[in-house]
């Protein structure tokens, strides 16, 4: 197995705080998640109006990916073969509950395609792929907790089989406004942090 891969950068959003490569870039401990994520989006100057139509999971994953990828100064002329491998515990349950609520009572029955489309966890991967024109490998996995071993194995497989040049991977969890976390990292042939289980867990816990 090739162990010559590195973690080039990482981004985390939790407890109403956004950090990139370990440094806090935005913090707002007062507000609810909805207010916090909108304010963070504005402060980060993401300029992507579709953001406001996204569900909570997509907003969380999109912003974390955008902050990380923006910092990479990716080429706009040539394609970037960056695979996306995401995971979480709650799938799209936050939006699933909203759709269920809209059909629970026949007297107030109002299922909406704008909600239903977000009842799949991989929609957030689609949103990021559209913004960054990533026609690359993508997959969404569910585990009951952060699974560094799985992400390591799958990422190494994509890189060593030349399916991708870099892999954006991690954990994007949104159960409810008080239980959310994004931890994304970019695996590449360049970088200072070794791509191994211990270092992934260390970064996840910081």
């Amino acid at each position: 197995m090739n162990t010559n891969y590195h973690i080039k950068s990482f981004c985390s959003i939790k407890n109403n705080q956004v950090s990139l490569n370990g440094s806090v870039v935005y913090k707002d401990e007062e507000n609810s998640f909805s207010q916090f994520i909108k304010a963070a989006y504005k402060q980060q100057n993401s300029k992507y109006p579709k953001f406001f139509k996204m569900d909570n999971l997509s907003k969380l994953a999109f912003l974390a990916a955008d902050i990380l990828l923006k910092n990479e100064n990716l080429s706009k002329e040539k394609e970037n073969n960056i695979a996306i491998v995401f995971s979480n515990k709650s799938s799209s349950l936050d939006t699933d509950r909203k759709h269920q609520e809209s059909i629970q009572n026949k007297e107030s029955y109002f299922p909406s395609p704008a909600v239903f489309v977000y009842t799949l966890p991989n929609i957030c991967i689609g949103e990021i792929s559209i913004k960054y024109k990533l026609y690359s490998e993508n997959s969404f996995f569910i585990f009951d907790s952060f699974n560094a071993t799985h992400l390591l194995t799958y990422t190494n497989s994509l890189l060593s089989s030349n399916k991708a040049n870099q892999v954006l991977c991690g954990w994007v969890e949104f159960d409810d406004e008080n239980n959310y976390q994004a931890f994304l990292y970019l695996v590449s042939t360049k970088g200072t942090t070794k791509h191994n289980k211990q270092d992934i867990i260390k970064l996840y816990n910081t």
Partner: peptide, 11 residues
């Protein structure tokens, strides 16, 4: 095998 994204539209 291969699994690629359209990078076009979510639905």
């Amino acid at each position: 095998e291969g699994s690629c994204n359209d990078a076009n539209h979510i639905s």
